[in-house]
Amino acid sequence: MRKTIVSAAIAVAALTAGAVAIAAETVTASESEQKPPHRHWHFEGPFGTYDRAAAQRGYQVYAEVCSACHSLQLLAYRNLMELDLTENQVKSLIKDIQVPDLGDDGQPIERPARLSDSFRKPFANPAIAAAANNGKAPPDLSVMIKAREDGPDYVHGILTGYVPFDKLTPEQIKEFNLTKDDNFNKYYPGHRIAMPPPLADDKVTYADGTKATLDQEASDVVEFLAWASEPKMEDRKRTGVRVILFLLAMAGLMYAVKRQVWADKH
């Protein structure tokens, strides 16, 4: 009986693997997009954590570049304290930010941001955002890293995957019907992306002296956005280790008890 189950299980596995293999082949054949290369991230793996220094630099990139168009509406300024920044450091980071509110007379006003405020949105609503960006609103980035397949690699790929018009082959220009005003991105589905290249070498000047290469900026902002997408990740992994250790011990005990209970029946 046991042998039958094992061999049958192998048969099932083989059949399924065959089907998946055929499937995988058709998929690679049908997709023209390049997959962004896998990079190592500090937050990967069962014990990975966010690199705080990188995430702080990433916030600087977001604040100085991305935030002109992209909102981060699920975050509040108080959340920045989770990146090992003190209350006063966060307050000085946001001291020039004005957020919309209603005055005592009920009229709209702008006032300095508080820690409890959500991140300032670049556009008051999606319609305004779309109107200001050729009809397509720049997406919110709060959970962007979780909202794409292989999110960290994908976002890094998009940020670094632009090909300037003069570097494109005539075939590419023809195939994708490109003009000088279009943006070609290796990793964007369909390649024609509305967003102009947002980052470049020395686009920001890092306070900690890190050299601001394009790759560095992209990696840092991905680290920051990964944290923004899943701020409780470290807590989750820590809890997970404890839970699994407990369950392993409990399983061991239960197995011993079960064996003893059954000792006279075998």
Partner: peptide, 22 residues
């Protein structure tokens, strides 16, 4: 629990108590 002759009762109790406590 049938009192099987080959099971040491103190070890059995210990296991039960430990499992219950866990």
């Amino acid at each position: 629990i049938p009192a099987g002759g080959h099971v040491d009762p103190t070890r059995r109790d210990f296991l039960m108590v430990a499992t219950g406590a866990m």
